[in-house]
Design a protein around this nucleic acid. Structure first.
Length: 145
DNA sequence: ATCGGAATTC
DNA sequence: GAATTCCGAT
């Protein structure tokens, strides 16, 4: 049978709430690759992963409780058997300049989503009611740093 | 642990 | 374009 990491995103996500347009824009129609921050949001949404990664502290802030496991799961999804937290965290660091994430300094393995940016720029049509963490505000008049 | 440059991959 | 891989510096 087909390995999990060989399936299309639409097939393996199953119950996940992310619509089709959430995955990689019009690149190659058949081979859309999930983005890391989508994957992070996906894990954060599932209660069974609360021992691995979970919302904690400030609004939009989350802590990676088990870095090795998150890296392993990410590697599974992307078919990268040698994925580890060192590499995954490098990818997270690239999000700093893109204003998708930033580090919560002083707190180990803790990052924070810039939801005002993420929602308004990347998910302009997202149904706010379906995601509890996307519910509150953002009128463009507060800064997120 | 965290950061970010550089080369490479798809 | 979005990582992946590798790695020296802090």
């Amino acid at each position: 049978q087909m390995k999990q990491c060989q399936m299309k995103e639409s097939q393996q996500t199953g119950s996940i709430a992310f619509p089709d347009w959430a995955y990689k824009p019009e690149s190659s129609p058949g081979s859309r690759q999930i983005q890391l921050w989508h994957f992070i949001l996906e894990l954060l949404q599932k209660e069974e992963y609360q021992g691995v990664i979970a919302w904690q502290g400030d609004y939009g802030e989350f802590v990676i409780k088990d870095p090795d496991e998150v890296a392993r799961l990410w590697g599974l999804r992307k078919c990268k058997p040698h994925m580890n937290y060192d590499k995954l965290s490098r990818a997270l660091r690239y999000y700093y300049n893109k204003r998708i994430l930033h580090k919560t300094k002083g707190k180990r393995f803790t990052y924070k989503f810039n939801f005002s940016k993420v929602v308004l720029v990347n998910y302009p049509l997202l149904d706010m009611a379906s995601s509890p963490f996307l519910l509150t505000r953002t009128q463009g008049n507060e800064r997120q740093e």
